Simulated scan of single mutants.
Amino acid sequence: MDERIKKFIASCKLLSWAMRDEKGVYIANAFYAFDERNLALIIASHEDTKHIKLAFKESKVAVNIAKESTIAFLQGVQIKANFCKANEMQIQIYYKKFPFAKLLGGTTFALEIEYVKFTDNSLMLTKKLEFYQDFVKKNEL
């Protein structure tokens, strides 16, 4: 993954993610920590929430992270990811970034990145960068 994409993802902390529900699409927001080594976004939530129940039913989810700015400097990523429970290392990454979250309880999950489209209007020549996880073929997305 291009270092500019990693730097952007690491610089933010709030994402919006979408999953399928019985009527189409459902969306939720979550604070996240970035597991750069495994290219995953780590979130925490309670297993009885609608968004977590839906993600367990269909693990392919969509994610958006954006920084509010003027059009000339707009930055954001659109991500396709796979939802799963976080491993022990990822749990530590999350609570290091959000230690207060331990008080809230819940379970920690990973959104494993399969595809990223990074838009950065401040880039002079290339405004969009893409990343495909090696095991994902472009035509499967």
Rank of each mutant, 00 (worst) to 15 (best):
N64P: 12
E47F: 01
T119Y: 05
V25C: 12
I9N: 00
Q78Y: 10
A101S: 11
F8C: 04
V61S: 06
F98K: 05
K85P: 02
A110C: 03
L74Q: 13
M124K: 15
K128W: 07
K13V: 12
L15W: 01
E36D: 00
A30L: 01
I113K: 01
T49K: 07
F73P: 13
E68S: 15
K117E: 11
L141G: 12
F56I: 12
A110G: 00
M19R: 10
F8K: 03
M1P: 08
A40Q: 01
A110R: 03
E114T: 05
V25N: 10
I42E: 05
K138G: 09
A101D: 03
L125N: 10
G24C: 07
A40M: 01
C12W: 09
L41A: 04
A30M: 02
C84W: 01
F100K: 13
R37V: 11
M124L: 15
N29Y: 14
L104Y: 09
H46K: 08
M1L: 08
I5M: 11
K127L: 00
Y32M: 04
V25S: 11
G105L: 02
L74V: 12
T126F: 11
F83P: 04
V63P: 05
Y32E: 05
Y95C: 08
F31H: 10
I93L: 11
F109T: 00
F34V: 07
A18M: 09
F135A: 13
D2R: 01
I9Q: 08
I91F: 08
V25L: 15
I91G: 10
W17K: 07
D2A: 01
T126E: 10
A81Y: 08
L125A: 08
Y132E: 04
A101F: 07
G106N: 02
L39Q: 10
K97H: 11
F109E: 03
N82Y: 12
F34P: 07
Y32A: 02
E88F: 10
A28H: 05
N87T: 06
F109N: 02
D48I: 00
T126V: 11
L54P: 01
K137E: 13
Y95Q: 10
A72F: 13
E36T: 04
A33V: 03
M19Q: 11
A86C: 04
Q90Y: 00
A101I: 00
W17E: 04
N82F: 13
N139H: 14
I65E: 07
M89I: 15
A40I: 05
V77P: 06
S11K: 08
E47P: 05
A101R: 00
T49A: 02
